[in-house]
Design a protein around this nucleic acid. Structure first.
Length: 492
RNA sequence: GUCCCCUUCGUCUAGUGGCCUAGGACACCUGGUUUUCAUCCAGGCAACAGGGGUUCGACUCCCCUAGGGGACGCCA
């Protein structure tokens, strides 16, 4: 049977290797059956979703070669593929669930919910909604709404019994209904939550197999119940293991470079990154570690997935990338790929205005612009020293800048400039002193082309990574220090 | 705290009851090739979390314990 699978990223930040991981397995699964792979943008969180993030997600996945058959930019018979453009659809189903007695309007305040949660936590119970509004009549609800009371729609959950989640990898998982919360389906702003939107869209888009992270197992009962309430056939569920940091926690950008853009900027080949992701939790029948996307599809089988959550090991990725470079590319292709990577005309045209007036002969160019094509510059604690500023404060400057930059969406010269002007002011420091260590962290030397232009060209992934690198050169920050710094940071 | 998932070398994995004296790869170490380095080649180190069952036989099946992870939001 032809499978239809999807990857459904939320455009709230840098495109994550975890997204690529799920996309890869979804893609292989669908293509193995001759089916389709769909890209859907889950931007129901109006607060955090940005069009910039969506654009970089599409770019990143396309760079990797995971082309989708249907999606926001190619359309298809089940569009639109952006949830923000489907809001009227979800409302309809929420109404239907209410009418059928499967959902109800809830007028509880956030404060009340927080209190309930806290007391349940304290009593050692599972935290869940206490059913306060479940018996409000239709008329009363209408009256409250007419009076301008804000409300959400929650789904009803069976009072007893267990839900059996059929996982294609693990078999049956039993979760008691008493553990499942009366999930909000429609938020006060009229937007659906993930749980409603994902069920409605997966059904309407005729998704047959849901491949997603293990983190979703515990909310699977809600989804299963919604399918039941709506009378729809349940797709197959495949929960992939989660990628991890070397310390075994869930892969996160605080501890590891997680954005696809970082690996692109560092000069990894998309084929190699994809190949590496493919060998996490999956292996070729003959044990070969180097394989193409097509080879993976050809040999793809769920039974070859292992369930232990793998550590993302940059060393092994580098080794694999080296093999791709040496074994797959001839000199001509190598030249083309390097050019495409950073030495392309567009990129040079951005750099040249910054250095043209600083050189007399071409040969002066290389040392001046080498940091545009470098990974992590070689730094020493001494090189990051700033006159009249304590080393601890330098570390603080770097860390605060990093946090500001992690929140920065518009990656251009002037906004970046402003970011540092603001930071210096709130810290009560001279801009020059704040910028000095940043300059060295980014360029690796005390003299270089203008900082903000350079940062704009380097892009967010490399800049953030270099700042993180600088912090670690200064000895890094301990958990205790992070706590203290975070507190101070919030008070700025 | 409650619930759920997971558990083979430091790391990625092979292993679907006898082929296991547990195989491969990364990393690390040693040696060789190379004017250097890298590549490449040869070799080495290193694991079935623990305890009970089931079975003629358990890395493989079951149970318990431990460890790790995840979920517990009007985030996804």
């Amino acid at each position: 049977m032809k499978a239809r699978t999807r990857v459904a990223p939320s455009p709230t930040g840098d495109p994550h290797v975890g997204t690529a991981y799920m996309a890869l397995f979804s893609y292989c699964y669908a293509k193995k059956t001759g089916g389709e792979f769909i890209l859907r943008i889950e931007d129901t969180d109006a607060e955090r979703s940005t069009p910039e993030s969506e654009a970089t997600i599409l770019d990143s996945l396309r760079w990797l070669g995971l082309d989708w058959d249907e999606g926001p930019d190619v359309e298809g018979p089940h569009g639109p593929y952006r949830q923000s453009e489907r809001s009227d659809i979800y409302g309809q189903y929420a109404e239907r669930l209410i009418a059928d007695g499967h959902a109800f309007r809830c007028f509880c305040t956030r404060e009340r919910l927080a209190e309930v949660r806290a007391s349940q936590m304290k009593a050692g119970e599972t935290t869940r909604y206490d059913g306060h509004c479940i018996n409000i009549s239709t008329d009363d609800a209408a009256a409250l709404m007419a009076a301008g009371e804000a409300c959400v729609v929650r789904m009803k959950i069976p009072e007893e019994g267990v839900c059996t989640v059929k996982d294609e990898l693990r078999g049956d998982i039993e979760i008691a209904w008493s553990q499942v919360d009366m999930q909000v389906l429609l938020k006060a702003d009229g937007n659906p939550t993930y749980h409603l939107a994902v069920v409605v869209d997966d059904h309407l888009m005729e998704i047959t197999d849901i491949i997603r992270g293990e983190e979703w197992i515990s909310s699977a009962p809600k989804h299963i119940l919604l399918y039941e309430y709506l009378g729809w056939p349940m797709p197959k569920l495949v929960h992939m293991p989660l990628l991890r940091n070397p310390d075994k926690s869930k892969l996160s950008k605080r501890k590891n470079p997680t954005s696809i853009g970082y690996y692109k900027a560092m000069g990894f080949l998309p084929e190699a990154l994809l190949n590496y992701l493919g060998m996490l939790g999956w292996s070729m029948p003959d044990g070969e570690e180097k394989f193409t996307l097509d080879e993976m599809i050809e040999n793809f089988d769920l039974s070859r997935i292992s369930l232990g959550a793998p550590v993302f090991d940059v060393d092994k990725l580098s080794w694999l990338n080296g093999r791709w470079l040496r074994e797959t590319l001839d000199d001509g292709q190598f030249a083309d790929r390097v050019t495409e990577w950073a030495l392309n005309r567009d990129n040079l045209l951005k750099i040249i205005p910054l250095v043209k007036e600083r050189v007399d002969v071409f040969s002066q160019l290389a040392p001046m612009i080498s940091f545009f094509a470098e990974g992590m510059p070689e730094l020493s604690p001494e090189s990051l020293k700033v006159k009249n500023v304590e080393e601890e404060d330098v570390k603080k400057i770097l860390q605060f800048s990093l946090w500001r930059l992690e929140a920065q969406i518009l990656w251009e010269r002037d906004p970046l400039n402003q970011l540092f002007v603001d930071l210096a002011e709130s810290l009560g420091l001279k801009l020059r002193d704040v910028l000095a260590p940043i300059f060295v962290a980014i360029s690796g030397k005390p003299v270089a082309p203008p900082l903000f232009d350079s940062m704009a060209i380097l892009g967010p992934d490399i800049c953030r990574a270099r700042l993180r690198h600088a912090v670690s050169v200064l000895g890094g920050v301990s958990k205790k220090q992070v706590k203290r710094l975070e507190k101070e940071y919030k008070e700025l």
